[in-house]
């Protein structure tokens, strides 16, 4: 079953083509990464899929609904976590979640909020203003807000851009946990490692076209077999940094 189906999608801004015939499909329950450098058109594609922009040509369907013809149905099926954590800094974490729950007509808004706070390790910070949260916490709240009412498809646009290494690990952990829950996730990223870590399937968007797509193994097969070399593995600065400050992905969330 296809959750997201994009065919021949085109979009240009002021005569400059950003998407020139993009095709990809995301199956239900899959984590799909749209990988590309800055300006490759990732955000444009996500904005079309979340009905914020109208495509110039081609078709885009989410859960079987065309984004141009049935935008209301599409909006019911999705949640967008944009490039910058779109949380309300003045409200507390709990209030942010209750706000979204009320907007989505969730009957037990308070209970939903409490459950999501628990699930995302934000219970202790629940009644603090979101403006006081760290980058990673804000992003976690942001993603939690996207999961209110369990939309079948979640778009995460560059979920770790601008986060420090700790924040990035927090978000990766969160996304990996989502995958188990059956939610379809389309994420965009410019970090190869992120796609490799999180995605079941990867499509590489370059200059407005998908130039390669498939599972990581399939992509690897496109290239000549790896040369075997023996090198001493030095720790990266990131590993050193995380070791010194005593954080790693396992200890997070205690």
């Amino acid at each position: 079953m296809t959750a997201v189906d994009v065919r021949g999608l085109r979009k240009s801004f002021k005569g400059v083509s950003v998407l020139c015939g993009v095709d990809f499909a995301v199956s239900r329950g899959e984590i799909f990464a749209l990988l590309g450098s800055n300006g490759a058109g990732k955000t444009t594609a996500v904005n079309i899929l979340s009905t914020l922009l109208r495509p110039d040509g081609g078709s885009a369907r989410v859960c079987g609904f065309d984004v141009s013809d049935r935008p209301d149905e599409v909006r019911k099926s999705i949640s967008l976590t944009g490039q910058f954590a779109a949380v309300d800094d003045i409200l507390t974490g709990r209030e942010n979640l209750i706000l979204i729950a009320k907007l989505r007509d969730v009957a037990a808004a308070k209970q939903t909020a409490a459950e999501l706070l628990e699930r995302f390790g934000l219970t202790d910070a629940a009644d603090r203003r979101a403006g006081t949260y760290s980058g990673g916490m804000k992003r976690r709240l942001d993603i939690a807000m996207s999961l209110v009412d369990d939309p079948p498809v979640v778009f995460l646009d560059e979920p770790t851009t601008g986060l420090d290494p700790e924040g990035r690990l927090e978000v990766w952990k969160t996304v990996k946990e989502l995958a188990g829950g059956g939610t379809t996730i389309l994420l965009t990223t410019q970090y190869l490692e992120e796609a490799e870590q999180l995605a079941d399937k990867i499509a590489i968007l370059h200059e407005g076209r998908i130039i390669a797509s498939g599972t990581l193994d399939e992509l690897k097969k496109l290239f000549p077999p790896a040369k075997v070399e023996y090198v001493e593995k030095q720790p990266t600065l990131e590993e050193i940094f995380l070791a010194i400050i005593g954080k790693n992905i396992e200890t997070e969330g205690n």
Binding site: L52, A86, L103
Partner: peptide, 8 residues
């Protein structure tokens, strides 16, 4: 953008 992508 968040509100505009919601079913309201």
């Amino acid at each position: 953008s968040r509100f505009h992508s919601m079913p309201i």
